[in-house]
């Protein structure tokens, strides 16, 4: 429910804790104002995501590592490369989060690192260009039929295996 509106349970919990602390010492008027503001805040929240079809959110390890999840725009890449380049030559599987990509593999020249190495495309020091997702967004292909028909099954894999 919350995730559909673009916020996570952990974020909601943080907000609640903040409220609890805020309410410790305050007047009746203050409480009423906080109530009013919180209602307005809920109503102002953005509705369901309008992201581009086939945008992939990859959140295998990012949340656990305190990074924003990576967002891969299929549309941007298919204008420049055919599917074959990544899905045949580089070995990307046809599954969101199914490749278990880590920064170590990317720096090693595998997966994204085959191009994002400062030669074909910009290098890994531009953290925020990939790790640009809303924190807590689960791994998914945005707008996919499976996402619209079935409840999400993707889960965080926790910390990467060494």
């Amino acid at each position: 429910m919350c995730a559909a509106r673009g916020i996570t349970k952990s974020q909601a919990a943080r907000v609640l804790v903040f409220f609890g602390e805020f309410m410790e010492g305050g007047s009746m008027f203050k409480s009423a104002m906080v109530g009013l503001l919180s209602m307005l805040a809920v109503l102002m929240l953005p509705q369901a995501a309008q992201a581009e079809y086939a945008d992939v959110v990859i959140n295998n390890y990012a949340d656990a590592a305190g990074m924003r999840p990576a967002v891969f725009p299929h549309w941007y890449h298919r204008i420049r490369f055919r599917c074959k380049v990544c899905h045949a030559d580089l070995g990307f599987k046809f599954k969101a989060g199914g490749n278990k990509i880590t920064m170590a593999k990317i720096i090693d020249g595998k997966f994204c690192g085959a191009c994002h190495n400062g030669e074909i495309s910009w290098s890994v020091e531009n953290c925020g260009m990939c790790h640009s997702g809303v924190p807590g967004t689960p791994t998914q292909i945005h707008g996919s039929t499976v996402q619209r028909l079935v409840a999400p099954t993707y889960k965080s894999l926790g910390k990467p295996a060494k």
């Binding site: 995501a49 924003r68 790790h131 809303v134």
Partner: peptide
């Protein structure tokens, strides 16, 4: 778009 974080500079 709802999945990119506007608070992120990138």
């Amino acid at each position: 778009d709802g999945i990119h974080d506007p608070a992120n500079d990138g």
